[in-house]
Amino acid sequence: MLEVQVDLKSSAAPLTIGQLARRAGVATSALRFYEAEGLIAGSRSAGGHRQYPRHALRRVAFIRAAQAVGLTLPQIRAALATLPDGRTPTKADWARLSASWAPLLDARIAALQQLRERLTGCIGCGCLSLKACSLYNPQDRVAGQGAGARLLRIETPS
């Protein structure tokens, strides 16, 4: 018979900043930044070292997932603020919040598709000018007259 001893005290012990960083796959500087931005909360040990509750792992995972979707830190902060008492998001919370991001994702997808279409058309335009490129200069009125130089003035000697 195999006997396994579980130290319940250590499984509930807070994580050091290094432990949280390793388990969450982020740099310790990112955790300090998240804490400064109010996205996660930690405390200090008797020796003055940062430590975090274990549920901070889920908050960091939430932050990283939201960043991967393209949300800004203010948007992530606002989403986390909707959770009562700053608790960790549950599956239901994630479903509600991620559903509210669908229009943002749809708009980003549409913008990327439009960019892809303009890039394809741009390859053969021949302007060779990043300053005049329709990707960088979408309000270019002269571009409607066709590709290439339109306002080139060649002075001839009289």
Rank of each mutant, 00 (worst) to 15 (best):
A30D: 12
L31V: 06
R32Q: 06
F33H: 14
Y34C: 11
Y34G: 12
E35Y: 02
E35W: 06
E35F: 06
A36P: 00
E37S: 12
E37W: 00
G38H: 13
L39C: 12
L39V: 08
I40V: 14
A41Y: 00
A41H: 08
S43C: 07
S43E: 07
S43N: 01
R44L: 02
R44N: 03
S45A: 02
S45D: 02
S45P: 02
A46W: 02
A46P: 07
G48F: 09
H49T: 06
H49M: 04
Q51L: 03
R54P: 09
R54V: 11
A56I: 14
R58T: 15
R58K: 15
R58G: 15
A61Y: 06
A61H: 11
I63M: 12
R64D: 12
A68T: 09
A68G: 13
A68C: 11
L71W: 10
T72I: 13
L73I: 15
Q75N: 10
I76H: 11
I76P: 06
I76N: 10
R77H: 15
R77D: 09
R77Q: 15
A79V: 11
A81D: 15
T82P: 06
G86S: 05
R87C: 13
R87M: 14
P89T: 10
T90D: 07
K91Q: 03
K91C: 04
A92D: 01
A92S: 04
D93L: 02
W94M: 07
W94N: 07
A95H: 01
A95R: 12
R96N: 02
L97P: 00
L97D: 11
L97W: 01
S98W: 01
S98P: 01
A99G: 13
W101G: 05
P103T: 09
P103G: 12
L105D: 03
D106M: 08
A107C: 08
I109P: 05
A110C: 09
Q113I: 01
L115I: 00
L119I: 07
T120D: 02
G121S: 04
G121Y: 00
C122F: 03
C122W: 04
I123S: 05
G124W: 03
G124K: 00
C125G: 06
C125P: 00
L128V: 02
L128S: 05
S129Q: 03
S129K: 01
L130V: 10
L130R: 03
L130C: 02
L130A: 13
K131L: 09
K131A: 11
C133H: 05
C133E: 03
C133L: 06
L135N: 10
Y136D: 02
N137Y: 06
N137L: 07
P138K: 08
P138D: 08
P138F: 04
D140N: 13
V142N: 04
V142T: 13
V142Y: 04
V142C: 01
G144N: 14
Q145H: 14
G146V: 10
G146I: 14
A147D: 04
A147M: 10
A147K: 08
A147S: 13
A149Q: 08
R150K: 10
